[in-house]
Nucleic acid binder design. Structure first.
Lengths: 100, 100
DNA sequence: TATAGAGTTATCATAGTTGATAACTCCGAA
DNA sequence: TTCGGAGTTATCAACTATGATAACTCTATA
């Protein structure tokens, strides 16, 4: 094992991570979390304040906003969060270009 | 108990049901199910065909499309269904008029 | 530096969704 | 009237999101 091999490995790993992040950025779940945080900050609320309104804990709000990609919240959870920051949810379906 | 009482009871019950239906029709969950069914029919697919694509059973697809108002599907479930009918999901947040 | 506020992470129990199977209704076509 | 396709409903197991608690980091500020 040379130092070159190690640095190659690191480089490869980092590339994978960045690719993964880019990929996740496109997912609806990722966009959703970004939106949730933006709406909360726009409303001037802390996670703890939202937690109080929804009768839960701030740790759970943090988890909702930062859930890793393997988790997927329930629609009702998103709706409740939205209500707490003064919004309601609409689900839109956008056609994908399957056949060229 | 007269027949008049019975008919009054029925009338009242029906009124309640209709009110309930109207209320549910406004919920995002209800709108979602209507959209899911519309998209599937537009794509010319049966519940069983979607079930095959998603590696599940037609009974589960039926449940998703007809879930009663107490159930709330996961976001990932909605996304998978959308993909099967050729769409992707976007979640929109619409401001509610809280203070007049 | 120490104190408080805001947010994160880990953990476990509980509640709820989903997977899978089976039996059922309904409807149109042979 | 029979038959098969499409959809519904019920049930239970397996899986996963959420509730709740605690300990932690980070930052601003006194």
């Amino acid at each position: 094992m040379s130092r070159t091999t190690l640095s190659k490995f690191k480089k490869k790993a980092l590339t994978k991570v960045s690719v993964k992040k880019e990929y996740e950025a496109l997912s609806p779940a990722y966009k959703l979390r970004k939106k949730l945080i933006a709406l909360r900050q726009k409303a001037g609320l802390t996670q703890e304040q939202i937690a109080t309104v929804l009768h839960t804990q701030k740790s759970n709000i943090s988890r909702l906003e930062n859930a890793n990609s393997t988790n997927s919240p329930k629609l009702s959870t998103i709706e409740e969060y939205a209500q707490a920051v003064g919004y309601e949810v609409e689900i839109k379906f956008i056609p994908t270009q399957k056949n060229t």
